[in-house]
Design a protein around this nucleic acid. Structure first.
Length: 967
RNA sequence: GCCCUGGUGGUGGAAUUGGUAGACACGCAGGACUUAAAAUCCUGUGUCUUCGCGGACGUACGGGUUCAAGUCCCGUCUGGGGUACCA
């Protein structure tokens, strides 16, 4: 008797460990490199194995992708579903700095923890293909890609990257005058003869200006405390994301990637991708294309000394007589009331008149030294200074003052703007602040003039006024005409600008890929492919050297190329390894190529990519860039890494609080706060009256159940509260407060998947995470409903064990049972295909509820149901599948076919509504025509009651849907 | 500020193309089984009103389109995410 009982219970722990072991030993989920089946590649965004391990938020996306992977296998696809680790990164390095432990050890330990946690959830990853970016046999190929990029230039004529040798050949035969490349702005022109006469160093410098991976001067976010450069997305609120240290702007020689060469293609590529519009919008904004025109303003000669510029320019006139601006609103040219230069603008000094010199110098010094952080802090503060000089308006001939303002950025456009305060809010604020004129030239549709409202009219709609030859035109026409006029007069030309900046590629850190470059006579050379990998050397400390060199400068003196030449001391940024990893999974153990062409051709691109939206503008732009680059050079056949992409929402933490009276060891239950305390209580805690101050303290969520604190557990948890007095509710409960916050250790609100798996099993965890709500929506974690999905699994189990023993019947299913099954197959398939996992679980619940009510234990129904459910709850379904007598894993079974015939209803339930409000319903034969339905409804006994003697104006019958009577 | 999202019972959420709002689950209340608890099962549960039948209201708010609006349009409020003067 006892044994039978043990058998009939759903023993998830035993089932789950056994099946996880089975999948591992049978390599059930290994992907095949080819075959007759169509391929399907499902990828999760690369995790960084942090020391804290996984919390319940992390697996959300993995569970979704795993369901898809398993579903696609049932549907007959050859599925590639790999996992690995983006294992270079700052936390392990910070830990190394603090403790001296090699980041490699830290990383390995963390990975071991991750792996154990992942295995427990029952994912169908092909672990044979695991990759780690910090392994030399992986980063060998990251370095190889770098060398390809270093050895390439971007040819605007062919509109793709080409090997640098084609550029050198062009230089040797024609110089650079007819080269149409993406390169540094200030490259001088030279002839073939010049080129041949240049020294090796000079040639190297020139080529550097063309390379797609190049060493250049760049303003970077320098973090002195970390001794490294940070990317924009590694900075939050002006301080480093990790560590929270201040960050300043600094001009440094840095390795960079000419991603800007790909701006237009990165933008265009978005159109064909099946990504969410919001994600695509984020990328579009980040790339920031603006179409406008360049325009030169002649500087009014006030007897200033001749301006000196560093760059030669096209055209016959020396640029020093002009200020060039970029504008997207050439139509507003007659509204220009001043011109503003960035403080760093090269003409600032020469344009400053003697009487303004002191003020300008003072301003420029302050503005230049203001760190990014300060500039962000008082963004609202308007600062600027007048130079004393003027330009001449190209159409009116009037003089226009030249100002300097730090709202103009040196790095965008030309570093100078034509200010139209009436139609640009930034110019408007500046003009208001300094009392400069505001000239209205666009009349909005509202007919309200600017003097009647505060602020500028920025919209690109309306008619031009006060604008000479543009008068009466609408904005669009005026733009065209203005550009035509500007071009005709030789003042400028139509131009496109991008907000996207080149990406800094060097980090002054230890724990990253060494950049495969060495320096000989001050010239950087890339390593030969045969010399890869350049292995990360050992160092005594993970800090910069005393004279500010990166940690790699600490490597043994023998760490030199050919024993003599210094290697580059910077390492690659975190995004290097993740920019191509999806390709390595296609052939992770290839030692002669990053992946062979026949395999990249077979797997092509990721069919479904799941990950967090925080990577919208970082990782996802870089991986698109590298993919396009590798395509250009012919290494791969596709130019977008992922066809479809879904962002899973964040799972936030739900923190609990207890309330402590200041200076007393007394904790007050939430609902008693601010209420009167009894005489007894006051006496106990030594207070005169019920007025007191209190603070909220985080309580560990694991000792709080439905906001009720386990007081004893709390005392055990916190030594200092062992003797605390608890002011509870009347029933003796201590109620905690709660708040939604980020899940983190310091807030004691972390829930790990292990906790859940221990209590309810991994199948329950998987179902519950999906049941919580739509995948893409953010939501706080809370276990309130978990018993519901756990109960569902038990109910499923009981379908097989209704009598206490495992019994299934071979009887023919009834019409009703078949309907239940096929309705479920249909819904589940639709739901999976639109990634609506929460509703599919509801549908499974409905199905099991109906089968339970029907007392159905028929094999013909339960077998297909198990297959449908197995992507969601793989362990329990494997077990029941085996008990049904199968020897092979359920994951190999084909998905059941859906048969519409079982769903056809004989009757339709027609709601009868009056003016849209439903009053009663009618069950009518599905075969009835619209007219018959109308006739039956109108003659129904209830009709008179609701018509209240009125004649219906109109009756609308929507076939098989609804009847609406208009009265 | 700008861009993107969301706002539906006590709670998580459902309603796929405009066609019975609140599926499914939690919680709560009552009941069955049990010495008791756990587990399981049954019934009820949007709000107001009514003894009840029923009726009225109801998808953030205000308008509109429509025979019919959670769904479409206009305006407002509000939660969350991204971005930071990009001319």
């Amino acid at each position: 008797m006892h044994q039978t009982k043990h058998f009939m219970e759903y023993d998830f722990k035993k089932i789950e460990t056994e099946w996880q072991a089975y999948w591992a030993t049978h390599k059930t989920f290994a992907a095949k490199d080819g075959g007759d089946k169509p391929k399907y590649y499902v990828l999760d965004m690369f995790p960084y194995p942090s020391g804290a391990g996984l919390h319940v938020g992390h697996p959300l996306g993995y569970i979704a992708s795993d369901i898809i992977a398993r579903f696609k296998r049932h549907k007959g696809f050859n599925v590639l579903h790999p996992m690995g680790y983006d294992s270079f990164g700052l936390p392990a390095e910070q830990y190394a700095i603090q403790t001296g432990q090699h980041p490699k050890i830290t990383t390995e330990n963390n990975i071991a923890v991750y792996r154990k946690q992942l295995d427990k959830i029952g994912f169908s990853f092909d672990w044979e293909r695991e990759v780690r970016t910090s392994n030399p046999d992986y980063y060998k190929w990251t370095q190889w890609v770098f060398i390809q990029i270093f050895n390439s230039w971007y040819n605007k004529n062919s509109n793709k990257a080409e090997n640098i040798s084609t550029l050198i050949a062009e230089f040797e035969s024609h110089g650079n005058t007819s080269v149409n490349a993406c390169c540094d702005d200030n490259v001088k022109s030279f002839t073939a003869t010049d080129w041949k006469a240049f020294t090796e160093k000079e040639q190297s410098d020139i080529l550097m200006a063309y390379r797609i991976a190049y060493l250049g001067e760049a303003y970077v976010n320098w973090c002195p405390q970390l001794g490294t450069v940070l990317a924009n997305d590694e900075i939050k609120d002006g301080v480093s994301e990790r560590g929270g240290y201040p960050v300043e702007r600094k001009l440094m020689k840095q390795w960079s990637m000419r991603i800007t060469a790909y701006s237009q293609r990165l933008l265009d590529g978005l159109d064909i991708l099946d990504w969410t519009e919001s994600l695509k919008d984020a990328q579009r904004n980040w790339i920031g294309k603006s179409v406008g025109t360049s325009l030169r303003f002649k500087i009014k000669d006030l007897g200033l000394k001749t301006a000196v510029t560093s760059s030669a320019d096209e055209g016959s006139v020396s640029r020093s007589e002009y200020i060039e601006v970029f504008t997207t609103r050439p139509d507003t040219i007659f509204g220009v009331s001043f011109v503003t230069l960035a403080p760093e603008h090269e003409l600032v000094e020469s344009l400053t008149t003697a009487e303004n010199k002191t003020a300008v110098e003072e301003y420029v010094t302050i503005a230049k030294n203001r760190s990014e952080r300060e500039r962000q802090a008082d963004i609202a503060k308007i600062t600027g200074v007048f130079t004393g000089s003027y330009v001449v308006h190209p159409f009116t001939g009037k003089q226009v003052p030249i100002w300097i303002g730090d709202y103009v950025l040196a790095g965008y456009g030309t570093g100078a703007v034509m200010a139209v305060p009436a139609h640009d809010s930034r110019d408007y604020s500046f003009a208001k602040h300094f009392g400069l004129p505001i000239l209205e030239v666009v009349q909005g549709t509202s007919n309200v003039t600017l003097s009647e409202v505060e602020g500028s009219y920025d919209a690109k709609e309306g008619k031009l006024i006060n604008s000479d030859f543009l008068n009466g035109l609408d904005v669009k026409e005026a733009m065209k005409k203005a550009i035509a006029e500007i071009e005709a007069k030789g003042l400028g030309k139509g131009k496109v600008n991008f907000r996207l900046r080149d990406a800094v590629f060097g980090r002054q850190r230890y724990w990253g890929e060494p950049i495969p470059v060495y320096y000989k006579n001050d010239i950087p050379y890339a390593l030969n492919e045969s010399e890869l990998p350049l292995v990360l050397p050992e160092v005594d400390k993970y800090l910069p050297t005393e004279d500010g060199e990166p940690p790699l400068a600490r490597a043994a003196s023998s760490w030199k190329h050919e024993g003599k030449y210094d290697y580059e001391h910077s390492t690659m940024p975190g995004w290097a390894g993740s920019s191509w990893y999806f390709l390595r999974y296609m052939e992770p153990h290839n030692s002669s190529e990053f992946a062979s062409k026949n395999l990249t051709d077979y797997w092509k691109q990721v069919d479904l990519y799941i990950g967090g939206s925080e990577h919208a503008t970082g990782h996802l732009l870089y991986v698109r860039f590298w993919t396009k680059f590798l395509k250009d050079l012919g290494y791969i056949a596709i130019d977008e890494p992922a066809k479809k992409l879904i962002n899973q929402g964040m799972i936030q933490g739900r923190s609990n609080f207890v309330y402590k009276i200041t200076d007393r060891n007394v904790l007050v239950s939430k609902n008693r706060l601010g209420s009167l305390l009894s005489e007894d209580e006051l006496k106990k805690i030594g207070l005169e009256d019920s007025v007191y101050k209190w603070t909220a303290l985080h309580a560990d969520v694991s000792i709080v159940n439905n906001d009720i604190l386990d007081i004893q557990a709390f005392k055990n948890w916190r030594e200092e509260y062992r003797d605390a007095i608890f002011i509870t509710e009347e029933n003796g409960d201590y109620i905690c407060g709660h708040e939604v916050e980020k899940m983190s250790k310091s807030k004691y609100n972390v829930v790990t998947p292990d906790d859940i798996a221990e209590k309810f099993g991994s199948d329950t965890l998987r179902l519950y995470e999906m049941f919580l709500g739509p995948l893409e929506q953010s939501k706080p974690w809370n276990t309130n409903g978990i018993t519901g999905v756990h109960g569902f699994l038990k109910k499923l189990w009981r379908l097989f064990y209704a009598t206490g023993e495992f019994v299934v019947s071979a009887d023919e299913p009834t019409k009703g049972e078949l309907k239940t099954l096929h309705k479920t197959i249909k819904k589940i398939t639709e739901d999976i295909e639109r990634f609506s996992f929460n509703t599919s679980i509801s549908n499974f619940m409905i199905c099991v509820n109906e089968l339970t009510d029907a007392k159905c234990n028929k094999r013909a129904i339960l077998e297909p149901l198990l297959i449908c459910l197995s992507p969601y709850a793989p362990h329990i379904t494997e077990e029941l599948w085996k008990l049904l007598g199968h020897n092979e894993s359920i994951s190999l079974a084909p998905f059941p076919d859906f048969n519409e015939a079982y769903l056809v209803d004989d009757l339709v339930n027609y709601p009868i509504s009056f003016n849209g409000k439903v009053k009663f319903t009618l069950e009518l034969a599905a075969t009835l025509t619209k007219e018959e339905v109308e006739a039956i409804a109108m003659n129904h006994e209830n009709m008179a009651k609701y018509l209240e003697g009125k004649t219906p104006k109109k009756v609308i019958v929507v076939h098989k849907k609804i009847v609406n009577v208009v009265v």
